[in-house]
Design a protein around this nucleic acid. Structure first.
Length: 207
DNA sequence: AAAAGGATCACCT
DNA sequence: GGTGATCCTTTTT
């Protein structure tokens, strides 16, 4: 049984969606097999008024998915080697999105997670470019509709023949909000507390 | 501290 | 249509 977060979840204000994604499961399916990571860190990007956002200077070929409907993926390439995975939020045209910065690996086809060291698990999911590499997210998933796709979606309840994951309720005091990473170029906007992560979680990208 | 690495965009001609 | 600076990072020195 596959459930997914629906459009109304993603259409809320980006500053609400970003922290609400914490604790939910990012699910990827390749060759009929599932990969699951718990989202532990996100960042909100507030569209054309946000100097840290790709949408700051208006619509371009690259950032076009940001101007589309909520719940779709915005996947872009940077630093000559890394893919970044974002989820579009709010009403179409707002150009807002949430960057997924870290996941805690829970399930992968190749080997039981329980046999994997914590250090190795961190290598897989604790960073925006690491998690896309682990989950094999690239250009081919750009603009995918996460409310409908079987290949990539987000849920708070995942199960297959041998696993059941249920998202725990995250309360406000379990969430840290601070300034975003890697946006020193953004002037005043770099100070805004738009990075959200689970307090004390071992899989966030950096302290 | 700095390389790796290539697409993208702003700014020219 | 060409060019150079830049980049929501990771890994290695």
């Amino acid at each position: 049984m596959v459930s997914r977060l629906s459009l109304d979840f993603y259409e809320k204000s980006t500053e609400k969606v970003a922290p609400e994604l914490l604790g939910k499961f990012l699910v990827r399916k390749t060759n009929g097999k599932y990969w699951v990571g718990k989202i532990v860190e996100t960042e909100a990007y507030l569209g054309e008024g946000d100097a840290a956002s790709h949408a700051y200077r208006g619509q371009t070929k690259r950032n076009t998915p940001m101007f589309g409907p909520a719940g779709h993926a915005y996947v872009y390439f940077t630093y000559g080697m890394h893919w970044m995975f974002n989820i579009v939020t709010e009403k179409e045209g707002r150009a807002t999105a949430v960057l997924i910065r870290a996941v805690e690996p829970l399930l992968e086809p190749s080997a039981p997670i329980s046999d994997t060291s914590k250090k190795a698990l961190r290598q897989k999911g604790s960073g925006p470019a690491r998690l896309t590499k682990w989950l094999k997210i690239d250009k081919s998933l750009n603009e995918v509709d996460l409310t409908k796709s079987d290949d990539l979606f987000i849920t708070d309840k995942f199960s297959d023949s041998s696993h059941v994951f249920t998202a725990e309720k995250i309360t406000k005091n379990q969430i840290i909000a601070e300034s975003r990473v890697g946006v020193d170029f953004a002037g005043e906007d770099k100070e805004k507390p738009l990075r959200f992560y689970l307090k004390g979680n071992d899989y966030i990208s950096k302290i």
